[in-house]
Design a protein around this nucleic acid. Structure first.
Length: 596
RNA sequence: GGUUCCGUAGCUCAGCUGGAUAGAGCAACAGCCUUCUAAGCUGUGGGUCCCAGGUUCGAAUCCUGGCGGAAUCACCA
């Protein structure tokens, strides 16, 4: 039994035996003992004093005396209303022994039948390459999927590609006008960047047209609407919706370039999907759902032909679902996608990893689904995350103020390579092995940097200062793992096989206990990370573990320890630390090398 | 203007459903490699937890009101 449960149970018994009112579970508050005090687990007695009607120190003293009778409790001390408990070394050694050889320690095996959850993430537009903001989205989506799996869910990762609309037509038009019939293959430019360049060309030319009109005295918003280029793009969009063959062929060709580019970036990021949905396919479903809603009088068609959902009785406004010309808007497609997915997977929950700029959108989306009578409308959950900002403020693609995903990835790997050779860490390895490890380190630095931040918060990325490789970073944790591996390999060379000696009697140093206690926390943190959809919780725990382990490593010999039982315990502690680092980092989508 | 989110060290961030003297990393300075990987370890300095009230034995945490920042409220996506 876990120590928390042992203590909680004993506290209840304490009250029961004295015929006092038994405390509610929420009143028995356990927390980690702060470093400056002796002990491992602290019982906060303030909430209990009312039941026992004694002062906090008296209560703590009496409880301490009682709990000390437990075989798991070695000693206690009281500081004001805090009862600090020292857990017996044997509890920790038994715990370490039980899990040291289990690489899946902490994870839940999948229940039967497992709850099926859908996680949508990535959701790119096909008119420009991915940037730093998308990286956060992809890393969060992938990691959350892994975390939910580790909590026993059956997870389906899905992507929704925004492959239609006016912005796509802009790139097509630009290519027709200024693309010289070139392809990415001919120019050697990655497909998504190639198409993104076309988008920029369009926007620049369009802006010049607007400026020209404004200088002739046309009001700006009118100029925006009437510039010849935007007119042409709109004509093209209409042709596309009508199924014009030539436009369709161009659309398919340019999208295929983009997808080839995305695939490379996804591969580098190490993310993947079980299914990809395309808005060009799902918006039909969206439209017919809306038409049905009109028939059922859940939705309103106004005189000009536009269709609306009236959400005023829900405290929101009216929301447009179809334009007066019958074309669909963004939310229409999302309605269709949701219905299709529910049909495909019959999921218990549908998560959407989408930036917090769309908080309102998702509130409206599930309300409308509810209005339309889908009983699963409540199963949609928006996993909202904050924006990535530059020191100068928000990224703005129009001003070229973006951090390109591919560039950033390459730079991180370059830096990892330079650092590795400066430190002379990878000598004696083949080029292929070196490349692999450098790749793991560079990506680890990038991924950890982003995932360690609470998803809900906006975060700032400074390209000048770039990403560290020391301190609270991915490479620091990876390094700790490499150390662990090196140690275990050496012990094997010495013919040491831990697990045979009786380690139940070894007494542990405070540092050893602290490492063990962090390992002990892992399952609960994983569970909480799943509940909150927060990879950051795991990142924080793994970092703390690596830090404590490095301190332990610094002042405790392991292989060289002459006391066999103690040596074996330290090796088992090392093994479990390695397992948890590897498992935890894996949940963040980060690989750990065996040497670096 | 309405709504939502955020505000903690010079910088980037932790701080769980209220608990002890608010913690890490970076940056700065000073130490530790003949010994299991120095991408490590140790030490020093650095704080009005935006402000003001309230609830409580106890508030960075909860409530109210300000201030500051961001997002959103489109026949954009």
């Amino acid at each position: 039994m876990r120590i928390e449960n042992i203590i909680t149970g004993a506290v209840s018994r304490f009250f029961h035996e004295r015929s006092l009112p038994e405390p509610d579970q929420s009143l028995i508050q356990l927390q980690k003992t702060r470093k400056e005090f002796k002990g491992n687990i602290t019982l906060v007695v303030f909430p209990l004093v009312r039941l026992i009607k004694k002062s906090p120190p008296e209560t703590a003293e009496e409880l301490g005396t009682y709990l000390k009778k437990l075989p798991e409790i070695k000693d206690f001390n009281v500081v004001k209303g805090f009862l600090n408990l020292e857990v017996e070394s044997s509890y920790w050694t038994r715990f370490i022994q039980e899990y040291a050889f289990n690489p899946d320690y902490g994870t839940q095996s999948r229940a039967v039948p497992a709850e099926t959850v859908l996680v949508e993430y990535s959701s790119p537009n096909t008119n420009k390459p991915l940037h730093l903001g998308h990286i956060r989205n992809n890393l969060l989506g992938y990691s959350i999927s892994r975390i939910l799996e580790a909590n026993g869910k059956s997870v389906k990762k899905v992507n929704l590609v925004n492959d239609r609309g006016i912005h796509i037509c802009k790139t097509m038009l630009a290519w027709e006008k200024w693309g010289d019939n070139k392809t990415p293959a001919e120019t050697g430019v990655k497909g998504d960047h190639f198409v993104g360049d076309m988008y920029v060309k369009f926007e620049n030319a369009y802006r010049k047209e607007i400026e020209g009109l404004v200088s002739k005295g046309v009001p700006e918003d009118q100029a925006r609407r009437e510039a010849p280029l935007i007119r042409e793009a709109q004509t093209m969009l209409k042709k596309w919706e009508e199924g014009d063959e030539q436009v369709n062929a161009l659309w398919k060709m340019m999208n295929s370039w983009v997808y080839a580019g995305f695939d490379v970036t996804y591969e580098k990021l190490g993310v993947s999907f079980d299914k990809i949905y395309y808005e060009s396919e799902t918006y039909h479903t969206g439209k017919s759902i809306v038409e049905e809603g009109v028939k059922k009088s859940v939705l309103i068609r106004k005189d000009d032909g536009s269709v609306w959902a009236d959400l005023t009785h829900r405290g929101l406004d009216e929301k447009l679902l179809l334009r007066s010309d019958g074309t669909s808007v963004y939310i229409t497609q999302d309605l269709g996608t949701a219905v299709l997915r529910q049909k495909d997977y019959d999921a218990d929950k549908m998560f959407y990893v989408v930036g917090n700029e769309q908080d309102y959108h998702f509130k409206v989306l599930s309300l409308i689904l509810d209005e339309l009578g889908y009983e699963w409308a409540g199963s949609l959950q928006h996993i909202s995350y904050g924006m990535v900002e530059l020191p100068s403020g928000k990224m703005k693609s129009r001003e070229g103020k973006v951090v390109d995903a591919d560039n950033l990835i390459d730079e991180m790997i370059d830096t990892a390579g330079t650092l590795s050779s400066e430190l002379g860490k990878l000598e004696g390895l083949t080029e292929k092995e070196k490349k692999n490890i450098i790749n793991i380190i560079g990506m680890g630095a990038l991924k950890y940097f982003i995932l360690k931040v609470d998803p809900q918060k906006n975060m700032i990325f400074n390209p000048e200062e770039s990403i560290d490789f020391n301190g609270n970073t991915g490479p620091f944790i990876q390094y700790t793992h490499a150390r662990v591996c090196s140690l275990l390999k050496k012990s094997e060379l010495h013919g040491i096989k831990p697990g045979n000696a009786d380690i139940s009697d070894v007494s542990l140093s405070p540092k050893e206990v602290r490492v063990a206690a962090l390992l002990h926390e892992f399952p609960a943190v994983l569970e909480e990370a799943g509940r909150n959809c927060s990879p950051a919780l795991i990142a924080n725990l793994i970092y703390e573990l690596a830090r404590e382990y490095n301190q332990f490593y610094h002042d405790h010999p392991v292989i060289k320890e002459s006391n066999i039982a103690l040596r074996d315990f330290r090796l088992l502690l090392t093994m479990l630390t390695g397992n948890v680092i590897k498992k935890g980092m894996g949940l963040l989508g980060i690989d750990v090398p065996e040497r670096m």
